[in-house]
Design a protein around this nucleic acid. Structure first.
Length: 481
RNA sequence: CGGGAUGUGGCGCAGCUUGGUUAGCGCGCGGCGUUUGGGACGCCGAGGUCGCCGGUUCGAAUCCGGCCAUCCCGACCA
């Protein structure tokens, strides 16, 4: 809000970071907490998260998972058992050393993720292959002491779900990993209208403790990539670290095969940066807390009561059809103010009802995505609202997809690549020899990273973009949040 | 961790260089009235230990010292 005219946002194209922060605040999504890097999620932001939660949770249940809850605190020693895991997370742990006014004998770590506590417990829950698979998820908060934080995108404490499963075979585990990756893809694309690429992380980018990490990656409107969700094949790393064995069909003790997968409140940031424009948020109807706002327009008190009555009927009719509708009957604001405010908050469709409309039994209907104003008969507005909302949902997805396609480039020359990614951002696809040194060189030269590789390795059919040796993988590079 | 800022009613800021009596302004908030088809206006009103601690001084938002906290950029980041 500082240095800005009243109620104005910075232009997205001129200062994306400022635009983002101001949209988050002005739209009432979130604000900074008192401790560094923490976030207060406000009603509008939390409601969006709740719709994402519900979409995920329904799919988790439909794929055979149940919810559980594990404790926030983890004995420090427990975390240390998986070497790569502890090394990966050690720098960003919050550790509790005091409790009840006394120094704790053993410090407690505030979970940065729950593999340690869950795998310790899973050992008690399985005896034989008949107990498997264990298919559990938890909705929780986790804490990672990041140096650099941003509302929704990287906060010290964040909300997420973490699925943790144990299987009798590697094949089953791998199937699970890809099944949940696809759930993420579906929720991102069909619910959040955020087109994503699904793929596999390089060794350098994978989760600390996983054999393989899979990811969905979106492309934000500033040309930077956002990792929206990850699904990990843990192999037997955690079962070995926490000694989790079961008796297999052949009567032998075997370490269980694990997966974990998570999607966080970061996704809300992804929605904001994928769809938002200079006027503010544009929320996909599937996750919009308010899908339709009805704004009454009147000049006198006499008009007011009549208009509000008609507007109230419109609200009731839409609500009766299952539409999330709000009648903005605040008398202290004029229509123009309300228009701007609801646009800022990203409401997909606005209905205006004034004296002229009442006289002719129609309403003005304005679409947040295309922005066109049209007059509809009252009955038609009610009857067609579901399809109008579908249209907005589809239009957002199509616009975002078109943006990503326009900003995805096949490249074979290293100079074209480094110049291009510097100037335009976006996804750059080319060959990679598989050598971590080449991967690191790109990051050093451009700050870009390999966002993903195909789920199954593909022959790129061309040389490594960096060193010119035969390509082993088809890599997608990008600068990321 | 490096660099740059900031801390003054709910929010955004000014005042500090050059110390001085009731610490201002805009927005917002409450009341009344006029307004209402793209961010209305008038009048009245409420609201502040000037981040914290100490020092200098007759007197500190202002000068000095220390501390704390947050934000931004970067490095780091499953």
């Amino acid at each position: 809000m500082s240095r800005l005219a009243k109620g104005r946002l910075p232009k997205q194209s001129e200062d994306f970071p400022s635009w983002y922060v101001e949209v988050v605040k002005q739209a009432g999504m979130a604000e900074h907490g008192l401790a560094k890097g923490t976030m207060i999620i406000k009603p509008h932001g939390y409601a969006v998260w709740e719709y994402i939660q519900r979409a995920l949770d329904d799919r988790f249940k439909a794929t055979g998972h149940a919810n559980v809850y594990f404790p926030l605190f983890i004995p420090e020693k427990l975390l240390a058992r998986e070497a790569e895991h502890v090394e990966g997370f050690a720098p960003e742990l919050a550790v509790v050393t005091h409790g009840g006014g006394e120094v704790l004998e053993e410090p407690l770590v505030v979970r940065p993720t729950s593999e340690a506590i869950i795998w310790t417990t899973y050992g008690k829950w399985m005896q034989s292959y008949r107990d498997l698979p264990l298919l559990y998820n938890q909705w929780a908060n986790v804490v990672r002491w990041e140096k650099r934080t941003r509302l929704f995108l990287r906060t010290t404490e964040f909300l997420w779900q973490e699925g943790h499963t144990a299987h009798a075979t590697l094949d089953e585990a791998q199937e699970e990993v890809l099944r949940m990756l696809d759930v993420y893809r579906e929720v991102a694309e069909d619910v959040c209208a955020v087109p994503v690429l699904a793929g596999r992380k390089t060794a350098a980018e994978k989760f600390a403790g996983a054999d393989t990490t899979f990811t969905i990656e979106g492309l934000m409107r500033d040309g930077k990539a956002l990792q929206c969700g990850t699904s990990h094949n843990l192999g037997q790393n955690f079962s070995k670290a926490y000694d989790v064995q079961f008796l297999n069909r052949d009567g032998e003790q075997e370490y269980a095969w694990g997966t974990s997968w998570g999607l966080s409140t970061r996704m809300v940031g992804g929605v904001i940066m994928t769809h938002g424009d200079d006027k503010g948020l544009r929320l996909p109807p599937a996750i919009a807390p308010v899908q339709v706002v009805v704004v009454p327009i009147y000049k006198s008190d006499d008009e007011r009561s009549g208009i509000l009555e008609v507007a109230g009927k419109m609200r009731d009719a839409l609500a009766g059809n299952g539409v999330r509708v709000r009648l903005d009957d605040r008398d202290q604001h004029r229509p123009g103010f309300k228009f701007s405010e609801w646009e800022l908050k990203g409401v997909p469709i606005r209905i205006e009802i004034g004296p002229r409309d009442v006289a002719s039994d129609q309403v003005v209907c304005v679409d947040r995505v295309v922005g066109d104003k049209r007059q509809l008969a009252t009955s038609e507005a009610i009857a067609s609202m579901a399809s109008l909302l579908d249209g907005v949902q589809r239009a957002l997805y199509e616009q975002a997809t078109a943006f990503r396609e326009a900003n995805t480039h096949e490249v074979s020359s290293y100079d074209d690549f480094t110049d291009g990614i510097e100037e335009q951002g976006g996804f750059w696809v080319g060959g990679w020899c598989g050598d971590p040194a080449c991967e690191a060189k790109v990051t050093e030269d451009t700050k870009a990273t390999i966002r993903l590789l195909p789920i199954e390795r593909e022959d790129p059919g061309e040389a490594c973009l960096v060193c010119g040796k035969p390509g082993l993988e088809r890599a997608t590079w990008g600068k990321a949040y």
